[in-house]
Amino acid sequence: MFYPIQLLADWLTYNVFSITPKTLLAEAVNFFIYDTVKILILLSVIIFFVSIIRSYLPPEKIRDILARKNKYVGNVIASLLGIITPFCSCSAIPLFLGFIQAGVPLGTTFSFLVASPMINEVALVLLLGMFGWKIALMYVISGLIISILSGIIIGKMKVESLVEPFVYQNTINGNIELPTMNRKERIIYAKNYTLDILKKVWLYILIGIGIGAWIHGYVPADFLAQYAGSDKWYAVPLAVLIGIPLYSNAAGVIPLVSALTEKGVAMGTTLAFMMSVTALSLPEFMILKRVMKMRLILIFAGIVGLGIIFTGYLFNLVLK
């Protein structure tokens, strides 16, 4: 499917830049061009289509769907709908307030709050482009399981008292009339959204792939196996910890991680790292502090963190 891109990369490397084939430099340059073009094309296509779907399912509609569902079905649907909803820290609070005040259970709300950032479309495209569809699918499915279970556990814990009291003092009616969009407006919306994302991430992706290309060409294979291979028990929790402060740089971190995996980091460790980068974010925790007590944020981060660590170990075992 990506054969024409390989031709383009070969032509640029050997004919335009006239780099001698089979040298380390040629390999690195070829890898850089191929990966960059492939990822940018994948990003544009996938984000465009996700945006079109999203234009039919804005958060307000999702809320009205979730308010009518019972607990377990609600957790599943909240997690699935979280996939198409991009997470922006500026809408975390209105999302939380809107869900709770329309009567969506706390556990269901948390399923959504975990799935929305964790199954992030940019991360998904990068995984697809660098590791293939099997790994991308594994990422989505384990993300869904973690968000469904986290929500169910938080729901069972009856921690409503740890939500700031003002949240429950207001109730709202859903089913409001939203401005409607015609087909042309949906396409314009999707195009603008795709361009916005590309503008935001292209530099990180280039830098990430650039460093990745250098590692690919110059660092010996298995170099990292002695530190982060699948037999090292501490690799997974360490990867999760490192991922927490890296939220805004997911786009640049992933190409880098792909190169590290090539040099011996176990796949489960890589996936755990990715999940931690997208799902556990310090800025998000700080913002959530406005609507819930610190203890609830810690419970939330703890459950999701343990889920990620467990997933990392599991994949390290399975993919050995």
Binding site: P58, R63, G98, I176, P179
Partner: peptide, 23 residues
């Protein structure tokens, strides 16, 4: 914003009716 039934920001409202949401 939440009381208007919305969950995205920013919102442009004319005479209390939301006419532009989240963009």
């Amino acid at each position: 914003i939440v009381a208007m039934g919305l969950m995205r920001s920013p919102v442009l409202a004319i005479n209390d009716k939301p006419v532009l949401i989240g963009s």
